[in-house]
Design a binder for these strands. Sequence first.
DNA 1: GACCAGGTAGCAA
DNA 2: TTGCTACATGGT
Length: 293
Amino acid sequence: METGQFPIDDLPGGLDLYRTLESGQTYLWHRDDGEMYSGTPSPESWYATVVDGDVIRVRTRNGILEWESTTDADPIVRRLVRLEDDLEAIVAAAPDDPLVADAYDAHRGMRLVEDPPFGCLISFICSAQMRVSRIQSMVSALAREYGDEIAFEGRTYHAFPTPAQLASATEAELRELGLGYRAPYVVRTAELVADGGAHPAEARDLEYEAAREYLTQFVGVGDKVADCVLLFSLGFDEAVPLDTWIKSAIEEYYPDCDRGSYAETSRAIRDRLGGEYAGYAQTYVFHHLRTGD
DNA sequence: GACCAGGTAGCAA
DNA sequence: TTGCTACATGGT
């Protein structure tokens, strides 16, 4: 086992793992001590994920971010929870807006995540018309049924399935796991990636709106899911997914940003939320409104 | 038993 | 292009 740590005090803006990993941005982590999204974790509890076959566990205790892994996870942890982000500067540069300010104040230390592209893509295909706790259980089921098992420190972890592993699933099997009408979307998208027809990571090299358009070629991916993948996996911090919560926020707080179409409303709200880091503001507002605190 | 959840595909006009 | 509507499922 390899281990390491980061002093959180050295991170501008800090780090709140609970808010970062249980705010509905990522479904590729789980808490070792029980179910996600059901009560707050104890300070002792670990969050675990599998990246490229390596188990990575993290927790924060006494002002220290600790990790344990099957490999040298230092650079991986930095990337997954975006430790390099100057969160303090991002908050300081946020638009002068009461809702955004309240959201940032209420959830100090929440960072964006950077999920692996394929897992992120499938997660958000599953997310359509679903509550976050159920998305988590659907993604966990996919890992349990189709992903590699990896033993680490007396526990068994499940990697998110590769495109080929997921493409081997049938629609009927995935319906059995409770994916409902998303089942064929997941299978067809996995097949497309497994066959080499396209890969979500290829969107990284494109300009923002072209990248969003690129991602919609995957089955089950519309503008909103595409924005989630751009924001939570591909480094497009300006992406603002227009989900039900943000739409109601637009209706209540930014009615002039409602331009009818997704593309035009997206431009208006991105501009309103500060442009470059609009997605950061969106993630805080989403979490703030959804949790009510 | 409605109503809702980080929406999208398919089709008509 | 834009505007419907069907689509699964579990929790409140």
